[in-house]
Simulated scan of single mutants.
Amino acid sequence: MIVKSQPDKAGLRGKRFVVTGGSRGLGQEVVQLLLGEGAFVAACARRTDSLRGHAAETGQLLTGSLDVREAGRLEGFVEQAGEAFGGLDGVVACVGGAQGRGLEEAAPEDWSATWELNVGHSVRLAAAAAPHLRAAGGGSVVFIASVSGWKPGPQAQYGAAKAALIHLAASLARELGPDGIRVNAVSPGSMLIPGKRWDRMRREDPAAFAAFAEEFPGGALVAPREVAQVVAFLLSAHATGVSGTNIPVDRAQNAPTPDGY
Rank of each mutant, 00 (worst) to 15 (best):
L103V: 14
L103T: 11
E104F: 13
A106H: 01
E109W: 00
E109G: 08
S112A: 08
S112L: 13
S112P: 00
S112E: 14
A113D: 10
A113N: 05
T114S: 09
T114H: 03
T114K: 01
W115M: 09
E116L: 07
E116I: 00
E116H: 03
N118G: 03
V119T: 09
V119S: 06
H121Y: 00
S122N: 01
S122H: 02
R124I: 01
R124N: 08
A126E: 07
A127S: 09
A128H: 04
A129I: 00
A130R: 15
H132D: 03
H132K: 10
L133F: 10
A135C: 06
A135M: 03
A136C: 05
G137A: 08
G139H: 11
G139A: 11
V141N: 01
V141K: 03
V142A: 06
I144F: 07
A145H: 09
A145V: 00
S146M: 10
W150G: 05
G153I: 14
P154K: 05
P154L: 05
Q155P: 14
Q155A: 10
Q155G: 07
A156L: 13
A156I: 13
Q157S: 11
Q157A: 11
Q157Y: 02
Q157F: 04
Y158N: 06
Y158D: 04
Y158P: 04
A160C: 10
A160S: 14
A161R: 05
A163V: 00
A164I: 00
I166K: 13
H167C: 08
A170K: 15
A170S: 14
L172F: 14
L172R: 13
L176K: 12
P178Y: 07
P178Q: 12
P178H: 10
D179V: 07
G180T: 04
G180L: 05
I181M: 09
I181A: 03
V183S: 07
N184H: 09
N184C: 15
A185F: 01
S187R: 02
S187M: 01
P188K: 12
P188W: 13
P188Q: 13
P188V: 07
G189Y: 02
G189D: 02
L192M: 14
L192V: 08
L192Y: 12
L192T: 03
I193F: 12
I193D: 10
P194K: 11
P194Q: 13
K196G: 03
D199G: 05
R202A: 15
R202K: 15
E204T: 09
P206W: 06
P206F: 04
P206C: 06
A208W: 09
F209L: 08
A210L: 06
A211I: 02
A211Q: 13
F212A: 09
A213M: 06
A213D: 05
A213I: 03
